[in-house]
């Protein structure tokens, strides 16, 4: 509870800074409007106006909060304006991609650790894959898959997987190689087989590494999904909401969607964290 005060202090500072920035960025429009109408405005009028513009350069915090509230609670969840709907669409594709990416990362890591040939051949490609901007590759994946008749969740999930497999791969390679020479020697004195060494030593040793990379991976999967929703011309999903907001200059809508994405990311990372705590505790690895 003692940590609540510093947290609130920082939060207040951020909100105050944000209000300040909103005033600075939005006042020009107020002055322009006043000049066009041939009236002069007082400072307090400017202040009030910058807080309530319909399309501000930077929406004020309470405007975003209201946008979020309207989006989550003020609509029927089947409505096109419902952030619950859009979040769900994005969430489902993220989860599918995350599952796919995690599976791919683990399978590749197992291969890399057990085969020198794979270590030499797969790892450079995995690294190269991450140097390509996702914005460049996402439209191509969407277009190619659409021409094959695959639309909707799967192309988005593939792009999410493309981003999220990498941290899992790197973490698992590190984790599966975590046992030191002594631990491997011990198994040799028992004449243990390779698969016994894997299931009894390498896999359990890699768990803390796996969870650390899953946290990065789940956030990456969300980014991948949102990016995939931009060029898809999708009408649903947080990415689509961002895009339509920017088409029509609806800054409040953009910021609300951004915050919805941030909240979703935070929740996802939190869930992975909780699973991590439970699993490591049951394994006796968390004190």
């Amino acid at each position: 509870m003692r940590s609540i005060l510093p947290i609130l202090t920082v939060l207040t500072a951020i909100v105050a800074l944000w209000y300040g920035a909103a005033v600075m960025l939005n006042k020009q429009w107020t002055y322009d409007q006043a000049a066009r109408a041939g009236v002069t405005v007082t400072f307090s009028q400017v202040l009030a106006d910058t807080m309530t513009q319909e399309r501000p350069v930077l929406p004020a915090p309470h405007q975003v909060a209201k946008g979020l509230w309207d989006g989550f609670a003020g609509q029927k969840i089947t409505s096109k304006k419902s952030l619950v709907l859009h979040s769900w669409i994005t969430f489902s594709a993220t989860m599918a991609g995350f599952a796919l990416g995690t599976l791919a990362g683990i399978v590749l890591a197992v291969g890399i650790v057990h085969s020198r040939a794979m270590d030499m051949s797969v790892m450079p490609w995995a690294i190269a894959s991450q140097t390509i901007p996702i914005l460049a590759i996402a439209p191509m994946v969407i277009v190619v898959l659409a021409s094959l008749g695959i639309k909707g969740l799967i192309p988005k999930a593939i792009i999410a997987a493309y981003l999220s497999f990498f941290p899992v791969l790197v973490g698992m390679v590190k984790g599966l190689r975590a046992p030191d020479g002594m631990q491997l020697d011990l198994l040799r004195t028992y004449n243990a087989s390779g698969s016994q060494a894997f299931w009894k030593l390498r896999l359990p040793s890699s768990m803390p590494y796996l969870f650390a990379s899953l946290k990065v991976g789940v956030a990456a999967a969300l980014v991948g999904t949102i990016v995939a929703e931009l060029p898809a011309g999708a009408s649903q999903g947080l990415g689509a909401r961002l895009l339509s907001g920017s088409y029509y200059g609806q800054t409040i809508q953009i910021w609300s969607a951004l915050f919805a994405a941030a909240i979703l990311a935070a929740v996802l990372v939190l869930i992975v964290g909780v699973i991590e705590r439970v699993v490591l505790k049951r394994m006796g690895m968390a004190k």
Partner: peptide, 12 residues
């Protein structure tokens, strides 16, 4: 049976 310098017990 072999006993190493470190106990090397599996923490899990």
């Amino acid at each position: 049976g072999y006993v190493f310098q470190a106990a090397g017990l599996y923490p899990w």
